[in-house]
């Protein structure tokens, strides 16, 4: 786009190409650097348990082609999707409630602050005692990881809605519902979305943690099993795949956010 504004004359086609694809090129460059360093570290080797990038990628390709990976994700995504969905819906609703009502703030906020601070690994045995080793416990782990940051971000953003905008709404005859839907939620949405992003990242950690600590299933099973048979390439391939999935999902969320709010630059006209 900058190329169009500057006028293309006096620039080589190569410069044009670099100019118009700069973000993509930068991403590729940083990818090459990171994976190159991985490859070199694997070849030295840093540790006998550290495979090269190429070994890991071929393991990833093998597991993708023979269907192992798909079967594993079918397992892992269950608690992840259920847990994240519950955390998002319940978390935003609870956060809204806490942010709007002092009583609910007093009642519920401490629970989520404690949840956020609690060492999850210590709670897992309790969850297993209460709910067994099935899906329920794993969903709980995902929720415990994902929900607090969603709730606390939403509540904070709602509480910080500019008072002058709410007052303006009332002056122009907004109902309580109008104030929430047309003023509080749009004003809070950037912070709510950043809470969702953080919550979903934490949910991914929770899903894998549950599979490592409760019962080895899905991707957690690949990690545990390949480590036990010293197939480190597969172990790293599984770890790599989950990181990749998390990054892709967060990118998707960002697209949804810009789509929902028109993608306009939202400067704040408060001065």
């Amino acid at each position: 786009m900058s190329v169009m504004r500057d006028g293309a004359e006096g620039r080589s086609p190569w410069q044009d190409l670099v100019g118009s694809h700069r973000p993509l090129l930068l991403k590729l460059l940083s990818g090459v650097l990171v994976f190159g360093a991985w490859e070199i570290a694997g070849r030295i080797p840093v540790s006998y348990a550290f495979p090269t990038f190429i070994e890991s990628m071929s393991a990833l390709l093998r597991m993708t082609l023979d269907g192992t990976l798909f079967a594993a994700y079918a397992e892992t995504l269950k608690p992840l999707v259920v847990g994240v969905a519950i955390s998002a819906v319940l978390g935003i609703a609870l956060g809204l409630w806490i942010g709007l009502s002092k009583t609910f703030d007093w009642l519920f906020s401490p629970i989520f602050v404690v949840m956020q601070a609690a060492p999850l690994a210590a709670l897992i045995p309790l969850l297993v005692m209460a709910y067994g080793i099935g899906l329920t416990s794993k969903v709980f782990v995902v929720c415990i990881m994902a929900m607090p940051v969603i709730v606390l971000n939403t509540a904070g953003a709602v509480r910080n809605t500019p008072a002058n905008l709410k007052e303006m709404g009332r002056a122009f005859l907004a109902t309580d519902r109008d104030v929430i839907l047309k003023i509080v939620l749009p004003a809070a949405s950037p912070v709510i979305f950043s809470g969702l992003r953080l919550g979903i990242s934490a949910g991914f950690i929770g899903a894998i943690l549950a599979e490592l600590k409760i019962t080895p299933t899905g991707v957690g099973d690949i990690i545990t099993f390949s480590r036990s048979v010293a197939d480190y390439a597969s172990m790293y391939a599984a770890i790599f795949s989950i990181i990749l999935l998390a990054v892709l999902f967060l990118n998707l969320l960002e697209r949804i956010e810009t789509g929902l709010f028109g993608g306009n630059v939202r400067g704040y006209a408060s001065d």
């Binding site: 002058n164 905008l165 007052e167 303006m168 002056a171 122009f172 005859l173 003023i183 749009p186 004003a187 709010f261 306009n264 939202r266 400067g267 704040y268 006209a269 408060s270």
Partner: peptide, 16 residues
């Protein structure tokens, strides 16, 4: 009420 309208000192416009 609908019989009164307010102009605010700090404008109070919706930034979005």
């Amino acid at each position: 009420g609908p019989d009164r309208a307010f102009v605010f000192q700090d404008f109070a416009l919706l930034p979005w």
